[in-house]
């Protein structure tokens, strides 16, 4: 296995208030890892710092061995980091088709994600191609946001609260799709709150508390450790 992403001692701050205090984590190619923790502990900030959407004041981020810390976000994205942000953030003034096409890379390969393959993957989007992004249900918007990230043919897919606020039946579908994506060998970093689903999907987990990694381990270890769950994850 080769190391895709390595985060070493990253610090970050919103103005004068520091939120990350030396976050370190790594992702091997083909792995699915999670960031766990309560709201406001720094999960989203960690991801934003990786993506260059936020400045890291100390520490470094390495992508396939090369440093990418504090590069502009459009350059980081081009390296192969696909991001599905919290709250979905599709383009409401573009149609479903346009939302997908704008993200497409012109990389030609039979295995590459393109419009047809994304529509096969999310058939509900195929029925709504000419609808405006704002006319979609929450679940459809989420599928569109994931589809749009896949269109960039990422080497690492980052999902922030992909199932939050969705109906149970839609959530189930999203989880099913994520399992399918894992089977294609795609590397995934996911932030979510549904522990059972995450343990079934992911290989390893990081627990963040107040801007620091306080626990890491695989799914079996997490499920066995009632202490971690009670201390850091119970609401």
């Amino acid at each position: 296995m080769t190391r895709l992403l390595e985060v070493e001692g990253v610090h970050a701050a919103y103005g004068p208030s520091e939120v990350l205090f030396g976050i370190s984590l790594h992702i091997e190619e083909g792995e699915v890892i999670t960031l766990l923790g309560r709201n406001g502990m720094g999960k989203t900030t960690t991801v934003r710092t990786i993506l260059g959407l936020m400045r890291c004041s100390a520490g470094g981020v390495r992508w396939q061995g090369g440093p990418i810390g504090n590069r502009p976000s459009h350059i980081v994205a081009r390296l192969g980091l696909g991001y599905v942000p919290e709250g979905r953030r599709i383009f409401p003034n573009l149609s479903v088709r346009e939302n997908l096409l704008v993200a497409g890379r012109d990389r030609e390969s039979s295995s590459a994600w393109n419009l047809e393959r994304v529509l096969d993957f999310f058939p509900r989007l195929a029925e709504r191609l000419d609808n405006g992004g704002a006319q979609l249900s929450g679940g459809e918007q989420q599928m569109l946001a994931i589809g749009r990230a896949l269109m960039t043919n990422p080497s690492l897919l980052i999902l922030d609260e992909a199932t939050e606020g969705l109906a149970p039946i839609v959530r189930e579908e999203i989880w099913r799709r994520l399992h399918q994506l894992k089977q294609t060998g795609l590397t995934i970093l996911i932030i979510d709150k549904e522990l059972d689903e995450l343990c079934a999907l992911a290989d390893r987990h990081y627990v963040i508390e107040k801007g620091e990694i306080v626990w890491s381990g695989d799914s079996a270890a997490l499920q066995a450790d009632a202490g971690v769950q009670a201390t850091y994850l119970a609401v």
Binding site: P72, H74, R78, F91, T152
Partner: peptide, 9 residues
Amino acid sequence: RRMRALGFP
């Protein structure tokens, strides 16, 4: 910001 995160300057 979203458009930049998709890789567009």
